[in-house]
């Protein structure tokens, strides 16, 4: 479904992502791990069109992505969350999700400005869709709270709800469990499985919490200093000497 072939990006002298290749198939729970500054987030930025790769290609369902603007990528069916939470702060929780659901709108701007019945109906439909997603992520009770007033863990979940609202085929999660306590992180584990099994989304996720990744993912790619150092199922990754070295002896 998603295919990176020798994707490379340089920022001045720094090669943030160096010759990285991996393929995510439909239905995967795919992990992307590596120490801080390894280039994981940059990979997401390449896929979602924030940056254009210096060389190499990124294909989604056989279509070349590099050079496609972010909003186009979202329309093609790839949605993401942000490591440093980027919610629409002054908007309510519900509104945050409706912005994303709006991607699939049909009614024109003129109808909205004239407040015509079809626009009112569509707005209601989008709100209902958004509300249903909020229920999945247990955010329905705070639907009308300003998103910046939410506690941290909820903001992270809202990031996921918002990304899901674009109805993507591929969901990119950037450190979804960062800053969560074990309880929250266990809940999240269940939610991510549910996203895959119930919503039929393929998930590619970056995560620091090794327990989380090893529990969840079926395939893992490890980056270090922009280079891909290992690829395979969790068991193989756990015992790979290069990975152990990269993590400086941290138990993996």
């Amino acid at each position: 479904m998603l295919e990176l072939n020798n994707a490379t990006i340089k920022f001045g002298g720094l090669v943030a992502v160096n010759d990285v290749s991996f393929a995510v198939s439909k239905g995967d729970l795919f992990g992307l791990i590596g120490p801080n500054g390894a280039g994981k987030t940059t990979c997401f930025n390449l896929i979602t069109g924030v940056y254009k790769p210096t060389s190499g290609s990124i294909k989604f369902k056989g279509r070349e992505l590099s050079g496609t603007p972010s909003n186009k990528v979202a329309q093609l069916g790839i949605a993401r969350t942000f490591q440093n939470i980027r919610l629409f702060r002054a908007l309510s929780v519900l509104e945050n999700v409706v912005v994303a659901a709006f991607l699939r709108h049909r009614v024109g701007l003129a109808s909205a400005i004239a407040d015509l019945p079809n626009s009112i109906r569509e707005t209601q439909e989008l709100k209902d869709q958004a509300m249903a997603l909020l229920e999945v992520l247990h955010l329905d009770k705070v639907a009308h709270t300003r998103s910046c007033d939410l506690p941290y863990g909820m903001q992270r979940r809202l990031e996921i709800a918002r990304a899901m609202a674009t109805q993507p085929e591929l969901l990119l999660l950037d450190e979804p469990a960062a800053g969560m306590n074990p309880q929250e992180s266990d809940d999240l584990l269940r939610v991510v499985r549910q996203i895959r099994d119930q919503f039929n989304m393929t998930v590619l996720l970056i995560e620091h919490d090794m327990r989380f990744v090893m529990n969840l993912c079926e395939k893992i790619v490890v980056l270090d200093h922009g280079c891909e150092i290992a690829q395979g199922p969790p068991e193989a990754i756990r015992s790979n000497p290069k990975v152990i070295e990269a993590y400086l002896g941290e138990p993996v």
């Binding site: 979602t48 924030v50 603007p69 972010s70 909003n71 990528v73 979202a74 329309q75 949605a79 993401r80 942000f82 980027r86 919610l87 629409f88 702060r89 002054a90 908007l91 509104e95 409706v98 912005v99 994303a100 659901a101 709006f102 991607l103 709108h105 009614v107 701007l109 909205a112 400005i113 004239a114 407040d115 626009s119 009112i120 569509e122 707005t123 989008l126 709100k127 918002r162 990304a163 609202a165 674009t166």
Partner: peptide, 29 residues
């Protein structure tokens, strides 16, 4: 007012709040 009342107004507010995130959610900024 009508714009803000309908879902059509939200992308405008989203652009004000965060262009990168808006764009990632499919808004043509």
């Amino acid at each position: 007012r009508n714009l803000l009342k309908s879902a059509h107004g939200l992308p405008f507010l989203a652009v004000r709040e965060d262009e990168v995130a808006a764009s990632a959610m499919g808004v043509n900024v």
